[in-house]
Amino acid sequence: MSPDFLIALTMLTNFTLVATSRVNKAIQLAVFQGILMGLIPLAMGLGKHTHILLLALVAIAVKGGFIPYLFRRALRQVKIRREVDPYVGYTVSLMLCAAGTGLSLVLAHALPLKAGTTPTFLVPAALATLFTGFLLLVSRRTALTQVVGYLVLENGIYLFGLLLVEEMPVLVETGILLDLFVGVFVMGIVINHIHMTFDSTDTGFLAELKD
């Protein structure tokens, strides 16, 4: 598979993510995107470096295995099916996502790439995915969907990191991946506490503190 195809698929996932109302489906899409993240470096032919191959496998295991497991557990406990009444509606979200993707193309155009870099789509795709994650994070009420947004945001950064993956020290890469995993884990714990305290994971309830 060509990396361009996988990157295009990632961007399509972005659009589907902002348009879906079912929490379950959003989680599945985020997992799908996470597995794509693991496949892209392999498709780019980076698998010949042992440490990158290992890292890609770890990414697939974490994003496609551990994190969905955490989500399923959380979902069983909180029994939420649909994102009802998001702060920004689905049609508007879709339009914003399209606008963000367009903006990413413009921004990426302003940043020069090192000669011989393939695939050139990587930077706009990274920025667009980052933007999508951010959009999900601020426009949704359910804590679970917000965590999905955080995961998508991290995927965007990961995509950009692929430009540098041959350069980066393994130690730093491992630290970054580990932190993502622990971050989602901690968020999962807090979601559980939100659920216990408010009997809901609607973060709209979290609005008692203000000036």
Binding site: L153, F198, L206
Partner: peptide, 23 residues
């Protein structure tokens, strides 16, 4: 209730900030 709210905001905003710093 209040400390859950404060923790969630701290965690989400802090994580987004730190993600941007990584980028």
């Amino acid at each position: 209730r209040h400390s859950v709210e404060a923790t969630w905001k701290y965690l989400v905003l802090g994580s987004v900030g730190i993600a941007l710093a990584l980028l």
